[in-house]
């Protein structure tokens, strides 16, 4: 914790790699070395990379499930309240509580809520939108949207110290290492 205060000037150290395999190996090594506040960056999803940085279970499925249940319950509840309590109408001799008919909008609202909760939940969990981020201060980092792979160990990590971490990162044989200013 004191280390973080010693080097407030930078966000972390950033290593660049050419292949996904190198990135995953580096992330595994960083985890094994005891780093926890670090992340891997890649131009496409790599299942192994999120495992390697120690992120095993996404909470998105739970949010989608809860959204779906809420949507379905409120969908049926809305129809029940409208067609049975607030404004009962006899249509074609069908019962007020016409469950076969109510299933259709209930289903649609289940999907709608599940989907929207999932999308907003995913962005919220990822802390997006965040148009600016210290990593964007490094010019070469723009290549993460093209063909390069990056590993950033953050200065906020308790194990971070400028020289030690620098040496550790050199041992990973990256193509380059740069400091990430705030």
């Amino acid at each position: 914790m004191s280390h973080a205060q010693l080097s407030p000037a930078i966000y972390g150290l950033l290593a660049e790699f050419d292949t996904p395999t190198d990135l995953v190996d580096a992330a595994k090594a960083a985890h094994a070395a005891g780093y926890r506040k670090f992340d891997a960056y890649s131009p496409f999803p790599i299942e192994e990379a999120s495992e390697a940085v120690g992120f095993h279970k996404s909470r998105v499925p739970l949010i989608v499930l809860v959204g779906g249940i809420l949507g379905g319950a409120s969908g049926y509840g809305l129809q029940y309240w409208i067609n049975c309590i607030s404004y009962p109408l006899n249509i074609g001799g069908k019962p007020y509580q016409s469950w076969p008919a109510f299933i259709v909008p209930t289903f649609e609202l289940t999907i709608l809520f599940a989907g929207l909760c999932g999308v907003f939940g995913m962005f919220a969990l990822n802390g997006l939108p965040m148009p600016h981020h210290p990593l964007f201060n490094v010019d070469r980092f723009s290549l993460v949207t093209r063909d390069k792979f990056f590993l950033c160990v953050e200065a906020a990590d308790p194990k971070f110290d400028m020289d030690g971490t620098q040496r550790f990162m050199e041992s990973l044989r990256p193509t380059s290492i740069s400091e990430v200013p705030h």
Binding site: A40, E47, A49, M122, F123
Partner: peptide, 14 residues
Amino acid sequence: MGWRGSARHWKNYE
């Protein structure tokens, strides 16, 4: 939205 390809983000995204 400031997408930066983080492994954690990709996991939630996927």
